[in-house]
């Protein structure tokens, strides 16, 4: 039964992916309307960060309980990268208060779901 024990599967990861895509879509609308990053984008990034930190805590609890990811090095690499993505987006968005700031938020929020999926894969798979 692959996946049943994974701490990065299930509701929190799905929530992170959906939320990230929603923020990306909202930011894309801002890009198309020539708008700088607005409050909704920044709040979205903040909530996304909370969900990702929750995911990291779940992973930490599982590790403390003796479970181990399939590829530990890659798993921790992705986990660390993941929790830094929304802050990176927020900082760059503040530096660039034009439509391109919204484009940065959109780009990073499209990358985040990919990293979540990679995180899930590196927990589970050992060679396939």
């Amino acid at each position: 039964m692959i996946g049943t024990g994974s701490p990065v599967d299930g509701v929190p990861s799905v929530a992170a992916i959906v939320l990230s895509l929603l923020v990306a879509a909202w930011a894309l609308v801002a890009v198309l309307r020539h708008r700088a990053p607005d409050r909704v984008q920044l709040i979205g990034l903040a909530v996304l960060e909370l969900v990702l930190l929750g995911l990291a805590v779940l992973a930490g609890v599982a590790l403390a309980g003796g479970e181990r990811p399939g590829e530990p090095g890659a798993f921790f690499g992705y986990l660390v990268t993941l929790v830094f993505l929304p802050p990176l987006a927020a900082v760059l968005a503040r530096m660039e208060p034009t439509r391109w700031g919204s484009a940065i938020v959109c780009a990073i929020c499209l990358v985040t779901p990919v990293v979540v999926v990679r995180l899930q894969q590196t927990w589970e798979l050992l060679g396939g």
């Binding site: 090095g73 890659a74 690499g77 990268t81 990176l88 760059l92 530096m95 660039e96 034009t98 391109w100 700031g101 484009a103 940065i104 780009a107 990073i108 990358v111």
Partner: peptide, 29 residues
Amino acid sequence: NAGPGRLLIAVYLLFAIAATSRAGLQIAT
């Protein structure tokens, strides 16, 4: 380094992180 350039820098940054961690991990392990 402004406007679209900042977006380009952001994407370069993401690839720098991805490539660095991938290479570091591969070479180390």
